[in-house]
Nucleic acid binder design. Structure first.
Lengths: 158, 158
DNA sequence: TTCACTGCAAACGCTTTGCATATGG
DNA sequence: CCATATGCAAAGCGTTTGCAGTGAA
C-alpha cells in the first residue's frame, strides 16, 4: 500500500495547519521527517528512520525525530505501538485503514485484520467508564495454519 | 479482590511443581516474591515490588525480582503488560477473571473492564484467517473524566 | 561438594534533556 | 530581533548482565 502523491499533499496540508494553529514553526526538518515517515512501508522505529534519513544525507538528529514524531502523533498522522519490551514502533495513520494485529506465537508472523465490532466495544466501554477514548490496541495471539500443519506433520513423524 | 489463603496455597503448589519439573532451585527468595506478588492489589511494577519488599526488611535485589517474575510468567502465575509507558506492569493471573484494560493517556490510570464481544471477534477472526487463537491483549487509550475536567478548568482559567 | 542463585553495581539501549547555535515569523 | 527549533552529547531510567560470594540439593 504505497503512499500516493495526493496523500502526501494532504498530510503536508494537515501538518502545516496543525503547526500553524499551535504556534509551532514550519521548519524544513519537520516536513522532511513527515515525508520520510510516509515513505516507510510498514512499521518502523526511530533508529531506522534516523538511518534512512542519514543515508539520504539529511542532517537530522534523533532528538528532532522524537520531537517531530510527537507532533505527528498529536495531529493523528502517526500511530505508536509498543510491541513487547523493545523499542516503540510507529506507522503512518492517514489514509491507512484501521486495523488490528493477529500474531503467530510460533513463527511471529503478523497479519492485519479489521473487525467493526471493536468500535462498539470502544463506545460502550468509554461511555460506561466515562473515558474519552482516542485509540486502542488489539492483538490476538495464536498459531497460524502453516505452523499448525507443520506441528501435525512432526507429531506424525515421531 | 484479596487473595484467599486457598489461592496462595494453590499457587505455591503450582510454582513449586514448575520449579521442580524444570530443574530450578526452590529458594526462599522465589517464594517470598511469589507471596508478595499475590499480596499486590492490582497492577504493579518491579520498582514497587522492590520497595514493598524492602519495607518488610526482605533482603532482595532487583535482578532477582526480574528473574523470578520471568519464572512466574512461564508458569502462568503472572501476566505482563506494556501500557505504552516506559516500565512494564504486572498482575497476578491465577484465580483472576479475564479482563482488558482502559488506560488514561494523561495520568496513566488503568481501569479494568470486561466485554464479552471480544470473544466473538476472536472466534470470527480466528476462523476467517485460520488461526488457532490462544489469547489476546486489548487496551483502550483515552482521557479519564478527572483529567478531562482538569483540562477544561485550565482552559477556562487561561 | 557443586553450581545455580543471589545481591550489588556497572553496563546497556531507548528516550529525554541541557546547551550553544541557528532560524522562522 | 528573539523565542523556538535544532544538532550534539550527556544524562535518565527501566532492564540486563557480570561477578564474587552463598546456599539448595
Amino acid at each position: 500500500m504505497p503512499t500516493t502523491p495526493e496523500t502526501i499533499e494532504k498530510v503536508i496540508e494537515i501538518f502545516s495547519a496543525y503547526l500553524e494553529k499551535n504556534g509551532h514553526r514550519k521548519t524544513p526538518e519537520r516536513f522532511a521527517i513527515l515525508n520520510e515517515v510516509y515513505a516507510q512501508k510498514g512499521h518502523f522505529d526511530i533508529e531506522s528512520l534516523y538511518v534512512s534519513m542519514k543515508a539520504k544525507r539529511y542532517r537530522v538528529s534523533r532528538a528532532t525525530l522524537y520531537n517531530t514524531i510527537d507532533l505527528l502523533q498529536a495531529c493523528n498522522l502517526v500511530r505508536k505501538h509498543q510491541f513487547g519490551n523493545s523499542n516503540a514502533q510507529f506507522e503512518r495513520s492517514y489514509a491507512y485503514k484501521q486495523h488490528d494485529h493477529l500474531v503467530c506465537t510460533k513463527c511471529n508472523k503478523v497479519v492485519e485484520f479489521c473487525d467493526p465490532r471493536i468500535q462498539n466495544i470502544k463506545s460502550t466501554v468509554g461511555e460506561l467508564l466515562d473515558f474519552n477514548i482516542l485509540h486502542h490496541s488489539l492483538n490476538l495471539y495464536g498459531i497460524c495454519s502453516s505452523c499448525r500443519k507443520r506441528e501435525e506433520f512432526e507429531k506424525e513423524a515421531s
